[in-house]
């Protein structure tokens, strides 16, 4: 198995994918993200981000969504090293 590391969503490069490992926010944040389909085990792909701590745009399954920067920091994903 290749070595892995956990990073938060804003640190994902545009176009890069990762598996959601942990959402560190409170239950409110978890509830909202989960309702949209973003939850541990899911594969997310970063589509884009707006500069200066703007929202992060992601694709999870077939849903494209925008997440505020602060919330995105609370989502940790595992990326396989190239």
């Amino acid at each position: 198995m290749s070595p892995t590391r956990y990073i938060s969503l804003p640190h994902l490069r545009v176009g890069q994918s990762g598996t959601v490992k942990e959402i560190t926010g409170g239950s409110g944040v978890v509830k909202k993200l989960t309702a949209l389909g973003l939850r541990p085990g899911q594969i997310v792909t970063k589509r884009d981000s707006v500069f200066t701590r703007g929202p992060v745009v992601l694709k999870v399954n077939n849903t494209q969504m925008a997440i505020g920067y602060g919330m995105a920091q609370k989502v940790l994903v595992e990326v396989e090293e190239e």
Binding site: M65, G68, M71
Partner: peptide, 8 residues
Amino acid sequence: PEILTEIP
């Protein structure tokens, strides 16, 4: 609060 929305 922060934005969280689906983009259709």
